[in-house]
Design a protein around this nucleic acid. Structure first.
Lengths: 356, 356
DNA sequence: TATCAACACGAAACCGTTTTCGTAGTTTTT
DNA sequence: AAAAACTACGAAAACGGTTTCGTGTTGATA
């Protein structure tokens, strides 16, 4: 038994090799830590043979600098924080993927926080990360935050000089870079498309106009109706927050005679479609559908849903690019910062739920 | 102009307040850094009034310790790395959400890396994070890694003493904690269910048997057929890797007369369902469907897809719990590590694509 | 031969914490 | 009154790097 322990320990000692540090290399090669550091950076200061010796040794023992130590010294972490309300929704997933892809290509890692629609968790997450863990934030505001209109946690962060990029669900109240899609314009186009195909009583299914995106989409919807000589019937605008159940869609459809629906997300569209089908109406002849978010749901719906591609991947890439630019160009006290808001063009993907 | 610059600078100086450090507090209060540090931790060593003074000052100036410095000192980062092949798929998304939720409740942040099915990116990601950025890994193997059978990057990491939890797509070759579902058993049940409803020619749609999960599901499928006196017709097993297009499903369905399909993911199931519908066959009367992954696609399909809930959230939570346990109970040289593999029970959610 | 660069390297400060240990000053014990 | 024991705090090392600056050694120049 004693014997066995001994064997196991030796085994572990062999297996479990600690990460090697500059100090280890310095000791082993009988040079100073600074020499090792410089040699590994191929500094001109260090002689040829010393460099070769150090580099060979480092390679042999698979030396990699400790990220934390480098971060502490250099005051940047090569991490970016992403705070989103949700991750299961196709749109956010694709944005996240876009961010991760670009960030990774620039040597950054992505820390993901899901606010789950909660103001409090949004605040907590940002506070956790703002204490040195990240170089900047990319975020989409949660619904609760938009409702409260309390953006102090964002201002806090920007005041500390931490770059912030807002996307999708944004606010004018905090000055930072932003990336959005042309919601109003594309909603306008979508509604106009349905009008052109002969639709007259067009409903809007929204998840709440406190979201800037929804507000913009609603504006586009209204303008399209008015521009085409159709008045806006306020009864045809259904607001249904995310967390509420969708039963009111039933009653809405029964109460209102409509011939087209624009939905701000694919879930509402798909849900409404299934009810409409059960009511025995034909899609798109009796009712046309267009939904925001060109996700799997839209692609595989029956009939396939005409939808508005938000180009989440692209948004993510752009957001990450803006953020990393901001992070890497050091802040100049002399110069007034000017923030950009990038707008990505959404595209209407025509499928079977609308008449061409 | 000079005047303007001056105004702007003053404005910025006021706005942009640097994060306060222990040193700042110490200087201001004319005590030592160590005293401040201890006072903030409510150490018994420090006198009542000094503690109060320091704590009040810290609160006033909103002092928060620098995470990076703490990490460097304490040798743990409170970050965990999650490496998954994909993030748009419902299953991975829910697992991720589960991980994030549990991790956050324990004060950990989650760094997400998407390997995108690539062995190389998996390796790169792990190397980036293994240099001190994280305390442990949770990961699902990419398809390429499973294909190559090269797990050196995982062994590398565990050899360095970094805890690792594998989920979903795992391997026996590396010793670590694991969490999976009872794939074989639930596949068995699913197939048997279809047999009981009178189905005889049951196909399996798989995305490649190099995935351990798919292999297990296939085993369950085979056993169910054999157990019920139906032989296994190898022609009825269709293997279609993720990245290939799904056209071969068409030809498969034309070539083989079948009356039920078990698909290892919902996409294949939904895709097959749409083809079957176009062929004019009835679901579930002519062909029944069961798909793994109880995602939105399954819920909103027409007809709604009977599916196998993998309980991604739960898997994520369990994985995170196992990892954090491992991280926080310090490693004991004397004691042999014993790894657990937790198995979560999957559930068959009956809907309209099968006969009850 | 004295002077001066250039070269090659090391000492030390620093990033912001934590933690051990030492020590004045005060109180208690004998 | 001397010894012992607290009390309350500070100095300093440590975590693992980066970087500035100083310096001993060389070879070239005057």
């Amino acid at each position: 038994m004693k014997q066995l322990h001994w064997i196991i320990n030796v085994f572990k000692k062999i297996q479990l090799r600690r990460k090697i540090t500059l100090k280890d290399i310095a000791r082993e090669l009988e040079v100073s830590i600074s020499t090792v550091s410089k040699a590994l950076k191929n500094s001109e200061e260090i002689g040829r043979d010393t460099k070769e010796k150090v580099q060979a040794f480092a390679k042999l023992y698979n030396y990699k600098p400790n990220n934390i130590a480098v971060s502490l010294k250099n005051k940047h972490t090569k991490n970016i924080g992403v705070v989103v309300p949700d991750i299961v929704h196709y749109f956010f997933t694709t944005v996240f993927r876009g961010i991760e892809k670009y960030a990774n290509s620039k040597g950054y890692n992505v820390i993901a926080c899901i606010s789950d629609g909660s103001f409090h968790k949004e605040v907590i997450s940002m506070e956790m990360l703002a204490n040195g863990s990240i170089d900047g934030f990319i975020m989409a505001l949660s619904s609760e935050t938009q409702l409260k209109g309390d953006y102090n946690h964002l201002k806090e962060v920007t005041n500390q000089g931490i770059p912030l990029v807002l996307f999708d669900s944004i606010t004018e109240e905090v000055q930072c870079d932003k990336v959005v899609i042309n919601d109003e314009q594309v909603a306008f186009q979508a509604v106009e498309k349905m009008i052109k195909s002969g639709k007259k009583r067009i409903a809007l299914f929204s998840s709440g106009s406190f979201y800037t995106v929804n507000k913009n989409r609603e504006n586009g919807y209204r303008k399209a109706l008015i521009n085409n000589g159709l008045g806006v019937d306020e009864n045809l605008i259904l607001e249904l927050p995310h967390d509420e159940n969708m039963d009111s869609i039933d009653s809405f459809l029964e109460a209102n005679k409509i011939d087209a629906i624009l939905a701000v997300n694919e879930i509402m569209a798909i849900h409404a479609m299934s009810i409409v089908r059960k009511m025995g109406l034909r899609i798109p002849e009796d009712i046309s559908f267009i939904g925001f978010t060109n996700g799997l749901l839209s692609q595989y719906a029956v009939p396939r849903l005409t939808s508005i591609a938000q180009h989440g991947d692209r948004m993510g890439e752009v957001a990450a690019e803006m953020l990393i630019d901001r992070v890497e160009t050091e802040y100049d006290e002399e110069q007034v910062e000017v923030f950009r808001t990038e707008v990505i063009d959404a595209a209407i993907i025509e499928r079977e739920s609308t008449i061409n």
